[in-house]
Design a protein around this nucleic acid. Structure first.
Lengths: 127, 127
DNA sequence: GGAATATGTAGATGTAGGTCGACATGACAA
DNA sequence: TTGTCATGTCGACCTACATCTACATATTCC
């Protein structure tokens, strides 16, 4: 096969279905759906989106810092978190909303002041 | 204080240092550094950047799917992951590099084919 | 009810990162 | 050595998201 024909190809390798046939020794119509089913089994469970949400919530240095500090304190006020992170109060508010929405912290008003506490089960696991 | 002066202010509330004084009952020069120290203690530990890296690696639906499937299989070939995720081989390669760099998977070549395995300790924890 | 103050939200801005196509590299067979 | 094929890298493009300012809302005190 000439180089010219390669240029016409979407890629230099074989199609995915052909590669899977070679790998598994099965027809594509048989083996390919198995991967789709495995993916659907994993991603379709109720745990998957929940754990993904928690992982995304924790995957920011400021939010991870806030949660790690809350592991060391019974509770923290919004402005205490602001002091530790050097962000504006608006950005702290945004981040704490993300953590609360992910079920990692709870917010409690005491007059004008808002205090955050860690939710009991903050361990993250792979579904 | 007139409304006009408020408009001149960066915000309608008090400065952070003042708010922390009110919250803690301590001088700002005394209480504010404590939050900086708490943050430094937490974020300065060697575990923090490592866990953050792992959390970021897992905070993508396709990478989380790949890792979750690997929990159910001894190993998976790159094109098997490609089949499950419906991405191009280039994007799969990119994602598996991110997981490998985060210490969550290892790659093993068998001829032309690349197989990925989960690293033994994939539990993520908050530092 | 108005003033003061703590925090929440909206919209703008800039950047990090996911995705792809094209090309490059590694491994194997002939 | 060349051809084939599996996968890695690069650069472009686009979107998600972090951050801020300005404004809005909630709460308390007088």
């Amino acid at each position: 096969m000439s180089t010219w024909v390669y240029m016409m190809s979407a890629s230099r390798g074989l199609a995915l279905a052909t590669r899977l046939e070679r790998l598994t020794g099965e027809e594509a119509t048989c083996c390919v759906p198995k991967y789709h089913e495995l993916a659907a089994e994993v991603a379709g469970s109720p745990r998957f989106p929940k754990e993904l949400k928690r992982l995304r919530a924790l995957a920011d240095p400021n939010r991870l810092l806030a949660v790690a500090m809350l592991r060391r304190r019974d509770q923290l006020c919004a402005c205490e978190i602001q002091a530790a992170t050097h962000l504006t109060h608006a950005t702290v508010s945004h981040h704490m909303s993300v953590l609360e929405d992910a079920g990692l912290v709870t917010a409690h008003r005491q007059g004008k002041w808002i205090f955050y506490r860690l939710v009991a089960n903050t361990e993250v696991s792979i579904p």
